[in-house]
Design a protein around this nucleic acid. Structure first.
Length: 482
DNA sequence: ATTAGGG
DNA sequence: CCCTAAT
């Protein structure tokens, strides 16, 4: 993997550069000033900024501040794409959240389209000025359910998946970075140029870019697990997205005017969108995949969702998209690419505690087979989470809950240092258990084997609301003999 | 169109 | 999560 990554990057970068060659490269003074400003004053002073800057400093001393700045920006991008350079849970979590948020974009599509990107861009500038207010001013057609559960949903420590996979991912990420580091001579040069140019020509607000991202992430983190409060997040997404779109525009459109660049992206965006929906009208999820286009460079060489690691965030997906985006020159190629790579896999969204609870609630109300109902009533606000997802989640919950019961006292000794795979609060687990016993869930029964010895009376007690009978006799006679 | 089950 | 088979 390592070896593959490097060439990848270089190639991409080279591509980018090529496309950009024709354009005039005018390092404006304003830019320099702003960049300097940013550097000297880590306004958002979030870890991210700090680290990024530090990272750049190490190898860029000999370069101008400008280059520093852009390199940093790139690095930052990488961080986002690669799933975090740092192995700490915090960062991972952050990234996950970011991913999730980006994911959300698809839900906001209409809105965004309606409002036009120009609006979004302005909004994103505003964000910088009033980061604390989310400045929905421009791009928030949503009723203000602003900071609703912000705090009510205590940061869930992360779910079973996140904790265990954190290590793996961070590891690979680190590797990646190190490599890019060694190649800095080349990469940096190109990157600086390209980014520099891109930003320069695209935005009048280069500085804000980084800044925005930082603050955005910051906020995202705060929102973190909030589940149906996607609305407030929208604004950030929009702002971030607008940036991305614009950048991509630069690549593809090339000769577009500066002034209209803010709006033009829309067309391309729409194009992408429509193409997508046409191609995969059936799969709503896919929409996300092709839309999520990050201007940054990615390194992950595709991992396939079947990957053992539980967390296989959209890094890949984004990288794919990015790839296709950079090659936007040949439509053929691109469409093929996007079709091929971008198409499948929906982003992996972490299940929040709230969601789990809701799910359990729903199951309690409607019964175990009624995924669509549950989805409609309890997850209406979340476009992701298809009924199937709900079912899957339930399945997992069952498994984990049974594991809880089983491991409870037995395997405590084997708890490895980072084996905190159990963020599920007791009450929830209990409920799951109840439901599990109440509802006959065929598949879970097999491997679970709690029914072997003593489970005679568990079903009968509360069959009132759970509607134990389904049209499909799947439950009762589930013999798997194809 | 939904659901179950497997990967 | 994604895909396929069965309803």
């Amino acid at each position: 993997m390592k070896t593959e990554r490097k060439p990848h990057l270089i190639k991409k970068l080279a591509d980018m550069k090529c496309q950009r060659v024709d354009g005039p490269v005018v390092p404006g003074m304003e830019v320099a000033t702003e960049a300097e400003h940013l550097l000297s004053e880590p306004k958002s002073e979030h870890v991210s900024v700090d680290r990024v800057l530090c990272f750049g400093k190490e190898n860029l001393e000999k370069h101008l501040k400008m280059e520093d700045f852009f390199s940093c920006a790139l690095d930052y991008s990488w961080r986002i794409n690669c799933g975090g350079v740092h192995g700490q849970g915090g960062d991972d979590l952050k990234l996950e959240v970011l991913d999730g948020l980006l994911d959300e974009v698809d839900e906001v599509d209409d809105i965004q389209a309606t409002h036009d990107l120009s609006g979004a861009c302005e909004g994103f500038q505003l964000d910088i000025e009033f980061p604390e207010k989310f400045s929905l001013s421009d791009c928030a057609p949503h009723e203000g359910s602003n900071l609703r559960n912000l705090s009510s949903q205590s940061h869930t420590p992360g779910f079973s998946g996140s904790s265990s996979s954190a290590g793996g991912i961070s590891e690979s990420s680190t590797t990646t970075v190190r490599e890019s580091n060694s190649n800095n001579g080349v990469l940096e040069k190109m990157v600086s140029c390209d980014l520099h140019h891109t930003f320069k020509s695209k935005f009048g607000c280069q500085t804000p870019v980084t800044d925005t991202i930082c603050s955005t992430i910051e906020h995202m983190q705060s929102f973190d697990e909030s589940d149906d409060d996607e609305k407030p997040l929208v604004s950030f997404i929009l702002s971030t997205k607008s940036v991305k779109s614009s950048v991509e525009m630069t690549k593809g459109g090339g000769a577009l005017l500066r002034q209209k660049r803010l709006r033009k992206p829309t067309s391309r965006y729409i194009e992408e969108f429509s193409r997508n929906s046409t191609t995969s009208g059936k799969n709503k999820r896919l929409k996300v995949g092709s839309q999520g286009d990050l201007p940054q460079v990615a390194s992950e060489p595709q991992q396939q969702r079947g990957c053992p690691k539980k967390i296989v965030p959209k890094l890949e997906l984004e990288s794919d998209c990015e790839l296709s985006a950079s090659e936007s020159e040949d439509d053929q190629k691109r469409s093929k690419r996007s079709k091929m790579a971008c198409d499948r896999r929906k982003h992996q969204r972490m299940w929040t505690l709230a969601e789990v609870i809701k799910l359990v609630d729903g199951i309690a109300q409607f019964g175990v087979g009624k995924w669509t109902d549950i989805k409609r009533l309890l997850f209406a606000s979340s476009a992701y989470r298809t009924p199937v997802d709900l079912r899957d989640k339930w399945r997992n919950l069952l498994r984990s809950s049974s594991a809880h019961k089983h491991n409870r006292r037995e395997l405590q000794c084997e708890t490895k240092p980072k084996h905190a795979v159990r963020p599920l609060p007791m009450p929830v687990v209990c409920r799951i258990h109840e439901l599990a016993t109440i509802h006959p869930y065929p598949m879970a029964r097999g491997p679970k084997k709690p029914s072997d010895r003593h489970v005679p009376s568990s079903k009968q007690p509360r069959t009132t609301e759970v509607a134990p009978f389904h049209s499909h006799g799947r439950n009762s006679l589930r013999n798997k003999h194809h």
